[in-house]
Design a protein around this nucleic acid. Structure first.
Length: 550
RNA sequence: UGACCCGUGGUGUAACGGUAGCACUACAGAUUUUGGUUCUGUCUGUUAAGGUUCGAAUCCUUACGGGUCAACCA
């Protein structure tokens, strides 16, 4: 049954456009600047733009907004491509704002010829001082009334490299008293003798965002140019330029960027974390980047589901990271293979176990019978989790305690008879007895236990390294704090356990295979693994509703 | 002192003048060879005050609260 879903405000607009014939099909674009890695906030925009053209006739372009050669690099272009594809989307055309530098230059000339743009020799300081403030009008530049001929001559010479960086700009001639600061003769072109990652040294003038973005949309005949709310004031300029240039009228629509608690989603801040080594790189599994989430073990399906659940709207928001975790658990529960791994071992000796060893059978995934089952070696010497035993248990403690019984998952019910300690009083091992006839699947013992523990046979166990991750920050909104957001980093965001004990089936781990370590959480092998040491990242823990009484 | 955008449970999002719903979280219970999963139930909401209307979360006004805008960044 298809779920009855209400439309978000953009879908409503598009359905209206399709219905009233404004468009027969739509074109959207995802327009990253290649100056950083994509993060979970971008995922929302990607799902939105590509999702719209999956739902409605049309297509989506991937367009790199590469108009600032000083910050942009090919490395970022490649990571962005990979991330979009990994999320499950394919673009119709791959474009670059730099593809349009020639056209954009012609557009600028057209504005000059129409008397709508002029070359300004003011320094950036002078320009700032004449700009006014949000509450006070600005003043006209002394260069504002140059003739069209003079402007054309100067602009062509700007392009020809006759002037040094920062010495002149091309500005739109609008209104220095406009209530919208962006309409106070915005800079359209600046001089930068910089090497561009695609056009090399061909250009020494580069268009500003406002002179490039809407024009690129127009060239690509984008029908719905979707961006975040901070661009609302730009819309007036976006429309003004399209009107004066007399080009295809793309239209801009804005939605509120998604913020997530206990993290930051700003490329500038993420770059700081990387550069200052607070994390190991853009793909550190604690990072909210797509590459970080991917390395951590998140699935694209779960991220898409998350984006769908948080929706699209125009109001400020701070989404609970718990929802992302819910989405990944929901997916992983269905696909993860179950394995038993003991993190902090406590030895259990089964004193009445008379066989040397045997194989027991366990299902790979109780949610999916087609995942089959596997054999696990069982013997008289096992490891269980140290925290699964208490000498003086509280009420409703379902695990092991002196005289208490538990089920060993897929094996026997055991009872704890004796606690062995060393001279310092530390528990070194437990002596237990196996309940006759309690073997899993063939249980005739009639014994009922509340607790089931994971375990591993001592002599068959293999070892591995496990990395447990927690939220990167201690506060919900680090960017909102008065002082440096880095003061709020969580010092316990990474915990490494060098040696855990795993059942032998984990020896053949493969890349991208997700596991549920029973009662421990979901895990995936990390790229730091090598032949002598397998490393597992904890993707997310299991929901844990147990809390000790009192 | 300006302009623009936005206010629905703890969080996110619906209801388009006609019963405030869904999801997450939290809590309680049932089931369970994972204290997982699954199932059931409970708590919590229209920023405020006026107005229009038979009827307002929805339309209007004002107030209040939050956000954005003074880069040769995007």
């Amino acid at each position: 049954m298809p779920e009855e879903r209400s439309l978000n405000f953009l879908e409503e607009i598009i359905e209206e456009h399709l219905k009233n014939g404004t468009y027969k099909s739509i074109v959207t674009r995802f327009p990253p600047e290649p100056n950083g890695y994509l993060h979970i906030g971008h995922a929302s925009s990607i799902c939105l733009n590509f999702g719209l053209t999956k739902k409605y006739p049309g297509y989506t372009n991937l367009r790199f907004d590469d108009t600032n050669p000083e910050t942009e690099e090919t490395e970022y272009v490649e990571s962005i491509r990979e991330d979009v594809r990994w999320l499950g989307f394919e673009w119709k055309h791959e474009r670059y704002a730099s593809d349009y530098f020639g056209t954009l230059y012609e557009y600028a000339l057209k504005l000059v010829d129409k008397g709508l743009a002029y070359v300004d020799d003011s320094t950036s300081e002078e320009m700032a001082s004449m700009k006014g403030t949000p509450t006070q009008p600005g003043m006209n530049s002394p260069y504002r009334n140059r003739t069209i001929e003079e402007n054309r001559d100067l602009f062509v010479r700007m392009r020809n490299g006759e002037f040094p960086d920062g010495s002149r700009t091309l500005r739109a001639k609008i209104d220095m008293a406009h209530p919208n600061m962006l309409m106070r003769d915005p800079v359209l072109y600046r001089i930068k003798q910089a090497h561009h990652h695609r056009t090399g040294d061909k250009w020494c003038i580069y268009p500003m965002y406002d002179m490039a973005h809407g024009q690129s949309d127009s060239i690509e005949q984008v029908t719905h140019s979707i961006c975040t709310m901070e661009f609302v004031p730009h819309r007036e300029l976006y429309d003004w330029l399209i009107e004066k240039l007399e080009i295809y009228p793309s239209h801009q629509y804005e939605f509120a960027r998604r913020n997530i608690n206990y993290t930051v989603t700003s490329k500038r801040k993420l770059l700081q974390l990387v550069n200052e080594k607070h994390v190991t790189g853009w793909d550190d599994p604690r990072m909210p980047t797509i590459s970080g989430l991917r390395r951590r073990g998140y699935t694209p399906e779960s991220i898409r589901e998350f984006c769908k659940k948080i929706g699209v709207a125009k109001r400020e928001n701070l989404v609970d990271v718990g929802l992302l975790e819910f989405c990944v658990r929901e997916h992983l529960n269905k696909i993860a293979l179950r394995r038993m791994v003991v993190f902090d071992p406590l030895k259990v000796v089964i004193t009445n176990y008379d066989k040397k060893e045997e194989m027991v059978i366990s299902e790979n995934n109780p949610e999916d019978i087609s995942a089959g089952s596997r054999e696990i070696p069982f013997s008289g010497e096992l490891y269980i989790e140290r925290e699964d035993f208490m000498e003086n248990p509280p009420k409703k403690y379902f695990r092991l305690a002196p005289g208490q019984m538990v089920r060993l998952k897929s094996a026997y019910i055991i009872r704890c008879d004796e606690v062995i300690k060393d001279s310092a009083g530390r528990i070194t091992e437990l002596h237990c007895t196996c309940i006759p006839g309690s073997k899993s699947g063939l249980d005739t013992s009639g014994v009922h236990v509340k607790g089931t523990l994971h375990w591993v046979s001592v002599k068959h166990a293999i070892t591995a390294e496990v990395r447990l991750y927690d939220r990167l920050f201690r506060v919900e909104d680090p960017a909102d704090e008065a002082d440096d957001f880095k003061n709020y980093l969580n010092p316990y965001s990474l915990q490494i356990i060098n040696k855990v004990y795993a059942e032998p089936a984990l020896k053949t781990t493969t890349t991208n295979q997700r596991y549920q370590f029973i009662r421990k959480g979901y895990f995936m092998m990390d790229k730091d693994s090598h032949s002598g040491n397998t490393v597992f990242n904890r993707i997310v823990g299991l929901k844990d509703s147990w809390k000790p009484q009192t």
